[in-house]
């Protein structure tokens, strides 16, 4: 219990440092963070840039007369209340953007992780069983090649093949613009169709990762006494492979699973951007391209929070699996 509490306090501290880091990084930058918004206002309303800057500052809640430190305290205060910022480009709160984009990211990440973990664990266990044979060598070879493909390159290839050559997946969006979100079958099918591209692009490299991880920690398990004792008991090979080897080899991966989930919240920026899939990563990419620092700070903080929750879960899972960790 003390261990868990310690880790929790520690991770909250990391969160605090990360958020503060990004705040100062952005606000210490030469130039005004509200400048981008001001330009768009002045263009829209045909207004003098200085006046537009004033409005922009008001909209973003920035008082330029205030010292940086006061702004920092205000920012933290808002953050703790759950108000993670204001997007200058979309002219709405980051919370609102998160509310409409997070479900899509969660959908894609959740399905991708599930698929890739199951396939990866199977392939890895299979490969380890056939260690040294042609199947195993080809699985390892293909996995290494896949790892050499940067995710965004893979995304481009899938978009090219799926959307342009074969025309089986749409070019962007989470569902057709002319469709009203509902629980109808049509809508669900079209949501799945739109998600397939990102899911495949995320899953393929993940499958390779899990396959190699599973293959890597299986030999160690095979030397355990309980494997030998099962053989001595005359337990069938197929049962040993499944219940004795695979189930034990999966254990250390379960903790990594939580961490992978956390990192994927933010790690999909390029994939979601390439597929124009309106998740967190897509808006993060937009925020970068448009230098929308409010949105950037908010989304980055959200991603860090996600990673921290995932890390925390992973540590708890790990300490449950391996009692030795608690001692440390």
């Amino acid at each position: 219990m003390k261990f868990i509490l310690n880790r929790l306090i520690y991770l909250l501290f990391v969160l605090f440092i990360a958020i503060s880091g990004i705040f100062f990084l952005i606000n210490k930058m030469p130039g005004d963070p509200a400048y981008g918004l001001a330009v768009s206002i002045s263009q829209q309303r045909n207004m003098d840039i200085n006046k537009a800057l004033e409005i922009a500052h008001q909209m973003m809640g920035i008082d330029t007369g205030e010292p940086l430190f006061i702004r920092y305290v205000k920012f933290l205060n808002q953050f703790i209340r759950g108000n993670i910022g204001y997007s200058t480009y979309y002219q709405t709160t980051v919370n609102e953007i998160v509310a409409k984009s997070l479900p899509w990211t969660l959908l894609v990440v959740f399905i991708s992780i599930l698929i890739s973990f199951i396939i990866g664990v199977y392939l890895g266990a299979f490969s380890a069983q056939k260690r040294g044979r042609a199947v195993d060598i080809s699985i390892s070879f293909v996995s290494s090649i896949i790892q050499a493909i940067p995710p965004f390159v893979l995304a481009v290839l899938i978009l090219f093949v799926g959307a342009i050559k074969l025309r089986i997946i749409p070019l962007g969006g989470a569902y057709p613009v002319d469709m009203e979100p509902s629980l109808s079958m049509d809508f669900i099918i079209s949501v799945i169709k739109h998600a397939i591209g990102p899911i495949v692009a995320i899953s393929i490299p993940q499958i390779a990762v899990w396959t190699l991880a599973m293959r890597g920690n299986t030999p160690q398990i095979m030397e355990e006494d309980y494997i030998r004792f099962a053989m001595i008991r005359g337990v069938k090979d197929s049962t040993i492979a499944r219940k004795y080897i695979r189930n034990n080899a999966i254990l250390p991966l379960v903790a990594s699973l939580a961490i992978a989930f956390g990192y994927m919240l933010g790690g999909n920026t390029l994939v979601e951007s390439i597929f124009n899939y309106p998740g967190i990563g897509f808006y993060f990419g937009k925020a970068i391209a448009l230098r929308d620092y409010g949105l950037l700070t908010g989304l980055f903080s959200l991603i860090v929070v996600g990673v921290i929750i995932a890390t925390f879960l992973a540590e708890i899972i790990y300490s449950l699996i391996d009692p030795r960790v608690k001692v440390k």
Partner: peptide, 19 residues
């Protein structure tokens, strides 16, 4: 070290690059 381990590196890199 721990802080840099936890912070997701690609988004952080993108932010710095954008700045």
């Amino acid at each position: 070290i721990s802080i840099f381990l936890v912070i997701p590196s690609f988004p952080a890199l993108l932010i710095m690059a954008a700045i």
